[in-house]
Amino acid sequence: MEKGLHNEISNEKLVSLYREMVRVRLFDDKMGEFYARGLCPGTLHLSTGQEAVAVGVCANLTKEDLVTSTHRAHAHTVAKGTPMNVTAAEILGKVTGCCRGRGGTMHLSWPEVGMLYSSSIVGAGAPLAVGAALSATLRKTNQVIASFFGDGAANTGGFHESLNLASIWKLPVVFVCENNLYAISVSVKRSTSVKDIAVRAKAYNMPGFAIDGNDVIEVYKTARIAVERARKGEGPTLIEAKTYRHHGHYYGDPGTAYRTKEEVEEWKKGDPIVRHRKYLLERTIASEEQLNNIDKEVEEEVAEAEKFAIDSEFPGPEELERFVF
C-alpha cells in the first residue's frame, strides 16, 4: 500500500502495530520452543507469517468488542489483549491458564478483554460470532464482533449460513478470512470455486475486500472501514486477507509435501514484520534503536510469561468435574 495512506494513521499507531506483531511473533516462537521441549499437550498451530491480519484487525477494536478465533488461535488471543502469561499457561494445560487447563492451544478464551472463544472446528466460529452480534444488537451494547477463520472454513455450510444470517439481520460482524492458501495440505486452488473468497460477499449482499494480508497497514485500514460500518449499524463485511504460514499446518509439519521450498521462501521474503519495520525506518517514523527497544521489551514480556507458565501447577483432581454444567 504505497499510496501514502499511512498519513491518515498516526505515527504512534504505526509503531504500535509493529509492537503488536512482534508480540505475536515472539510469543508463538516461545510456544514452538515449548512444544519442542515436550511441554505442550496435544498439537500446536503457529501463526508465524500471518501476524499482520490479527494485529491489523484487532487494532481497530475496543476492549468491549469481541473476537472469535480458530484452531490457530494464539495470534488473535494475544492481539486482542489477553495477557501472555495466562495464554502460555493455558497452552501448557496449567490451572492458572485462561481456561484453567481445560482448553489448551486451540480453545483460548478470555472474555474480559473480548477474546470470546476460539473453536477448533473449522468454520464453527462464525455462527457464534453471529449470535454474539445478535446479542450485542438486542442488548444495545454497540459492540462489534470480529470473526476470524481460514480459507478452509469458507467452504463450510456454517460459513455460508452465518453470512446470510448476519446479512438479513444486519448484524455488526466483521468476517475475516485469513487465506493462507492451504487447508492443511489442500491448496485453495483445488478446493475453492472462486479466486477471491471475498467475492462471496456479493452473494450475501455485503461488501467484500480481497487484500494483501501481509501488509499490516492495508489490513488496518480495511478493517477500519468494516468496523465503522458495523458500529453504525450498517451490517457485516467480509475481508479476505491473503497471507501465508511460514511453518507447516502444525508444529513439526515441514509443510513441504504440498508446497515447494521456492514458494515458501518467496513468501518469507514478504514477512509482514520485516516489511513493516522497513516501512517505519525508511520514513523515519521510528528509529532503529526504538524498534530494537521494542523487540527487547517484548522479549522480556515473553520471558515473564514463560516463567509464569512453567512455574504454574497442573489442575488438581478437584478441578476435574467442575464447570460441567
Binding site: V95, T96, R100, E313, G316, E318
Partner: peptide
C-alpha cells in the same frame, strides 16, 4: 482460606 485459594487456586 479465601486468600490461600485466591493465591493458589487450590482448596
Amino acid at each position: 482460606r479465601k486468600e490461600f485459594e485466591e493465591k493458589t487456586r487450590a482448596r
